[in-house]
Design a protein around this nucleic acid. Structure first.
Lengths: 199, 199
DNA sequence: CAAAGGTCGAACCGATCGGTACGAACTCGG
DNA sequence: CCGAGTTCGTACCGATCGGTTCGACCTTTG
């Protein structure tokens, strides 16, 4: 968004708008694939404004990744919750949502994993680890509500399917990756030892 | 290796030695995490030699990735083959080998995926895609020999487990990632519809 | 109207980037 | 022993990098 020259519209609004605008650009080009000058130009903001709000390019990157992680996780959680109360339906809906993402022409894999593969410095990798924590919590919850005897292990196996499907879709073939992963996930859910539903 | 100043020892030898020496450095630092000057210094070779043999930094990177992909795939295939004739044993051995890799302190995830996440240009991504092709072929073969009715789908699901386990091990927690993935893989193998062993 | 503060645009900085050039040192085949 | 071919070390190139500074502009607050 072209921020008007004068200010005081809302300093916080500017910051939020910058994070919003910068997300697709950094996702598409890669964190190191675009310089600060071009990045500022593409989101319609001056370098001084960027450094005022975020201190550094890394500061902006980290704020963006953190926000994106929360947003993506919420989106998945809502897709699952909207499928009803049956954990199996929730899991299936989650992978359907993933397939929907894979079919998006701008899909380029998991932004957190891409970021961690480039910046192998601490702050970014910590954000990626927290991102996987969020996914794991979501999947472990489904496993627990499905009555799995060991929801942590099953949740972790489901996490591998989610991330593996994303990798395969991004780097090999997006077609039906979500469907195949969903089928595998439901198989694991069915085959897992049970203690009966837990909530 | 410190190449002696004069040459004619073997021009091909030099090239091979460079690829060998550069592999761990680029894996550890990332493709863009080290400049040509430092890279040459770390492998004990002058810039002129690098450009004589590979034409560009990207040329070296691509040659290295291609060689690494073949080596890693062979290593996994041999680990599986060494487990005997039973496809279940082969699959289990493959994930045990992966866990062994995850436990290596220098483990930093799949080099091909890391590379593709950085250089999202064509040549590197093509190498990554071929790498996944090799894995898929290996896993599909196991699925076929196990008598799966649809070995391509099962192979793809196993590929997701392999890559997902690698992602989780690299970015979340390496402990037992291979074991949990192995257990899931064997479950999928057992649950898959069969047409009877095929070879 | 005046002071304060957010923003722009462009100039500027030192560092580093990938890549080239060149002379000297060295090993080989003839 | 001489020329061809490799390598080293270093200096160098233009481009780009992340980050800073500054004057002008604009909007809000009082």
């Amino acid at each position: 968004m072209p921020v008007p020259k004068g200010s005081t519209i809302d300093p916080e609004r500017t910051r939020a708008a910058m994070m919003e605008a910068v997300t697709p650009v950094l996702y598409e080009r890669g964190l190191d694939g675009i310089g600060v000058a071009e990045l500022c130009a593409s989101i319609g903001v001056s370098k001084e404004t960027l450094y005022r709000h975020f201190g550094s390019k890394d500061g902006l990157v980290e704020a963006m990744l953190e926000a994106r992680s929360e947003r993506v996780t919420s989106w998945l959680a809502e897709a699952a919750a909207a499928a009803g109360d049956d954990p199996r339906d929730q899991l299936a809906a989650l992978f359907d949502a993933l397939q929907q993402w894979y079919d998006d022409p701008v899909f380029r894999g998991c932004a957190m994993l891409n970021a961690a593969a480039q910046h192998h410095v601490d702050p970014v990798r910590a954000i990626t680890a927290r991102h996987l924590d969020r996914y794991l919590e979501l999947l472990t919850g489904i496993a627990r509500r499905a009555g799995a005897a060991d929801p942590h292990v099953l949740g972790r196996q489901l996490l591998m399917l989610v991330e593996g499907a994303t990798v395969v879709a991004a780097h090999h073939d997006p077609a039906a990756a979500g469907e195949h992963a969903r089928q595998a996930a439901l198989t694991l859910l069915s085959a897992a030892p049970r203690t009966g539903p837990q909530d």
